[in-house]
Simulated assay, not measured.
Amino acid sequence: MSGQIQSFSKLFRDGLWDQNVVFAQLLAMCPTMAVTTSGTNGLGMGLATTAVLVVSNMLISAIRDFVSDQVRIPVFVVVIATLVTLVDMSLNAWLHELYKVLGLFIALIVVNCAILGRAEAFAFKNGVIASAVDGLAMGLGFTLALTTMGLVRELIGSGTLFAQASLLLGPAFSFLEVKVIPDYGGVLMMILPPGGFLVLGGLLAVKRLIDQRVAKPACPAPAAHCA
């Protein structure tokens, strides 16, 4: 039991940080740049992708003994495409405003390399529960990356956080809406595509510095100086 908990803990650490889809693997750059103009958009896209990741991992793990290596990739694509279609229809039915904002990028979840990659690298080789945890961890890491980028761009670009959350995600999310800087003129470039590249580069640099600080060995007690 203890070993399983440690294994799940490692999966979450990998998904959220060490193998983060955006900040470590640099995958899914298209939706990352396109939908992160606000924290709300990033959160919505991340949660939709997480739902597909979790369920696709579970289904692929469940049928792995019945799928030959020769046809596994087409099978993965069919499973993922079916789930994305269901998510697309669900958003259109229950979160129509978010559906209109995300638009084509919901359907493009099908070609998200992270989802197909986890199916191939993990779900096809592991059990259903472990695959579900892996999908959840990777999905939450992706959501964290998109939401963080969206919040930074939104804050600098318009001085708000989670703008229109109640409209796009539902009235229950109205508590997220914050006007941080009243009467703020905004920096238009941060909302435009160049802002996405600037914010991504800055966050990658911050992650690299944190990783280097964590990996740096502690200074021995007797030593007078540390490098």
Score class of each variant (00 low, 15 high):
1 M>L: 10
2 S>N: 14
5 I>N: 12
6 Q>F: 11
6 Q>N: 13
6 Q>L: 14
6 Q>A: 14
8 F>L: 05
8 F>H: 13
9 S>Y: 08
10 K>I: 06
11 L>G: 10
12 F>R: 07
15 G>P: 04
16 L>V: 06
17 W>N: 06
18 D>Q: 14
20 N>S: 02
27 L>M: 13
31 P>F: 00
31 P>E: 01
32 T>Y: 11
32 T>L: 12
34 A>D: 08
35 V>Q: 09
35 V>Y: 04
36 T>Y: 01
38 S>E: 02
39 G>T: 07
41 N>C: 07
51 A>P: 08
52 V>M: 11
53 L>W: 05
54 V>E: 11
54 V>L: 15
55 V>T: 15
56 S>H: 10
56 S>P: 13
57 N>K: 10
58 M>D: 00
58 M>S: 03
62 A>T: 00
62 A>Y: 01
64 R>E: 03
64 R>H: 12
64 R>P: 03
66 F>P: 01
67 V>G: 09
67 V>A: 07
69 D>G: 15
71 V>D: 04
74 P>E: 07
79 V>I: 15
80 I>V: 15
81 A>E: 01
82 T>S: 15
83 L>V: 12
85 T>D: 09
88 D>G: 05
88 D>E: 15
89 M>L: 15
90 S>K: 05
90 S>N: 11
90 S>H: 09
91 L>V: 01
95 L>Y: 14
97 E>V: 06
97 E>I: 07
97 E>C: 00
98 L>I: 04
98 L>T: 08
101 V>G: 01
101 V>Y: 05
102 L>M: 09
105 F>N: 15
106 I>D: 12
108 L>Q: 12
108 L>T: 14
108 L>N: 10
110 V>G: 05
111 V>S: 14
111 V>C: 12
113 C>R: 10
115 I>W: 09
115 I>N: 12
117 G>E: 00
121 A>I: 11
121 A>P: 00
125 K>M: 06
126 N>L: 04
128 V>P: 08
129 I>P: 05
129 I>L: 15
133 V>Y: 09
135 G>M: 12
137 A>R: 08
137 A>G: 06
139 G>V: 07
142 F>Y: 15
144 L>K: 12
148 T>W: 05
149 M>A: 06
149 M>F: 03
150 G>D: 03
152 V>L: 04
153 R>D: 00
153 R>Q: 02
155 L>P: 03
156 I>R: 07
157 G>K: 03
158 S>Q: 14
159 G>T: 01
161 L>Y: 01
161 L>S: 00
163 A>N: 08
164 Q>C: 00
166 S>N: 13
169 L>K: 13
170 G>P: 10
171 P>R: 04
175 F>H: 11
177 E>K: 02
180 V>R: 06
181 I>S: 05
183 D>C: 00
184 Y>E: 03
185 G>C: 01
186 G>T: 02
187 V>I: 11
188 L>M: 05
188 L>G: 14
189 M>I: 13
189 M>N: 03
191 I>R: 14
191 I>K: 13
192 L>D: 11
194 P>R: 09
195 G>W: 02
195 G>R: 04
197 F>Q: 05
198 L>N: 05
200 L>F: 10
204 L>Q: 13
205 A>V: 10
206 V>N: 06
207 K>T: 04
212 Q>F: 05
212 Q>R: 13
214 V>T: 13
214 V>I: 15
217 P>V: 03
218 A>F: 08
222 P>I: 08
222 P>G: 06
225 H>R: 14
